[in-house]
Design a protein around this nucleic acid. Structure first.
Length: 320
DNA sequence: TCGTGTCAAGATCTT
DNA sequence: AAGATCTTGACACGA
C-alpha cells in the first residue's frame, strides 16, 4: 500500500513567499481611483501567483506531489463592490508555467474554499455568494490547466439550520443546479461538529461524488469510533475517479482545545489510523493540516522512518 | 521593526 | 436584536 503526503498553502521555511497576500476592503476603498485600485489588485495577484510557482518548485525539489492551493491568490476576488477584472488572461504566462510544473511532475493539486462557501444555506444570498466563489476557484484551476477530474474542490455540508435532514436535502438540490464542470470538481468532507462520516457518505452516494475523510474531525464528531467499516466505503466513493482516495489529517492541539490543529501531526494519532487503512490496503494520499505545514510533513516522515512497519520511498512517500 | 488589534465573507451561542 | 466566539494569516497602525 503506497501513501503520499501533502500539505496546505505555504512552505513555512521559504522566506517572503506568501501566496495569500491581500488588501483589506477598507483600505481598498480608500484608494484614490479605479486605476490605483486595479493596480493594487494586479500587483498582489501577480505576487501570489509567483509565490505559488515558487512553492511548486520547492515541492518539486523535495519530491512532494500533493499540495493544496490557497483560496486567496486573487485578493477580494468575489467581493461584490470590487471592480470586475480579468485575473486570468493578464497572467497567462505564469499560469502556463504553473501548469507545466504540475503536469511535468505529476502533482495532485486541490483547493478548499473556506467556511463561507456553503451551498446548503437557507439564505439565498449566501448560496449565491458561494456559487460565485466556486466559479472563482474553477477559473483558477482551469487557468492552471487542471481539468475537473484532476483539480478537486473540497467542501463541507454546512450548518444545522432548521434540521440536518432538511439541510442535506437542500445541499443535494443546490448541488444539482451547479454547472457540470463545477459539480465534477466537488468532493465532500466530514466536519468536527455536525455532519459526521455517515451523514457525508449518505450525500456522496446519492450524488455519486467522492468523499474525503478528515481523521481529526472524525475523532471530534462520530457515532461509531470504529473506522473499520466506514473507511472501505469512503475509499469506494473514489472508484469511478481518475485520482486515488485522499484523507485529511491533523491532531488535536490539547485536551482543552480538541478541535484546534496542533503544530505537528502526532505519530500515534497517525499510526492508529494507518492500522485501519492497512486493512483496506489501497493506495491513497494524505493531506496534512498542521500549523507547521511542510515542516510538519517532514517531521512526520522522520517518525515514520523510525518505525519498522513502514518502508520509505522518498521525502513524502512511503509504503506500509 | 516589533507587537497587537482588525479584517469580506457564516453560523451559533449568549445576552 | 446585538454581540462574542470560532479560526486564520496577513494587513494596518502605532509605539
Amino acid at each position: 500500500m503506497k501513501v503520499r503526503l501533502g500539505y496546505v498553502a505555504m512552505a513555512i521555511d521559504l522566506k517572503d513567499c506568501s501566496p495569500s497576500k491581500t488588501i483589506t476592503y477598507t483600505r481598498y476603498e480608500k484608494l484614490k481611483d479605479d486605476e490605483l485600485k486595479l493596480y493594487k489588485l494586479n500587483k498582489l495577484t501577480e505576487k501570489n501567483l509567483e509565490n505559488t510557482r515558487r512553492i511548486l518548485l520547492y515541492n518539486k525539489s523535495h519530491n512532494i506531489k500533493v499540495y493544496r492551493l490557497t483560496s486567496k491568490i486573487v485578493p477580494l476576488a468575489t467581493h461584490n463592490n470590487v471592480i470586475e477584472w480579468d485575473y486570468v488572461s493578464e497572467y497567462t504566462k505564469i499560469y502556463n508555467s504553473i501548469s507545466n510544473i504540475i503536469k511535468e511532475n505529476n502533482m495532485r493539486i486541490s483547493a478548499h474554499p473556506d467556511h463561507f462557501t456553503i451551498i446548503s444555506s437557507p439564505r439565498e444570498d449566501v448560496v449565491e455568494a458561494s456559487i460565485k466563489d466556486l466559479i472563482y476557484h474553477n477559473n483558477i484551476m482551469n487557468a492552471m490547466g487542471l481539468s475537473s477530474s484532476e483539480g478537486k474542490l473540497v467542501l463541507h455540508i454546512g450548518g444545522k439550520y432548521d434540521s440536518k435532514e432538511k439541510t442535506k436535502l437542500r445541499f443535494i438540490d443546490n448541488f444539482r443546479k451547479l454547472p457540470e464542470e463545477i459539480r465534477n470538481r466537488i468532493i465532500l468532507e466530514n466536519d468536527d461538529k455536525i455532519y459526521n462520516i455517515e451523514d457525508v457518505l449518505e450525500i456522496t452516494k446519492e450524488l455519486n461524488i467522492p468523499m474525503v475523510v478528515d481523521i481529526h474531525h472524525h475523532w471530534c464528531n462520530h457515532k461509531e469510533d470504529n473506522l473499520d467499516n466506514l473507511l472501505e466505503q469512503i475509499f469506494d466513493t473514489w472508484n469511478n475517479q481518475k485520482l486515488s482516495p485522499k484523507i485529511h489529517i491533523s491532531s488535536p492541539k490539547s485536551d482543552k482545545k480538541k478541535r484546534a490543529h496542533a503544530d505537528n501531526v502526532d505519530f500515534n494519532f497517525f499510526y492508529d489510523f494507518m492500522k485501519n487503512a492497512k486493512k483496506v490496503n489501497r493506495d491513497f494520499d494524505i493531506m496534512i493540516e498542521a500549523k507547521n505545514k511542510n515542516v510538519a510533513l517532514f517531521n512526520l516522515m522522520e517518525n515514520i522512518k523510525e518505525n519498522e512497519n513502514f518502508k520509505i520511498i522518498n521525502n513524502s512517500t512511503f509504503e506500509m
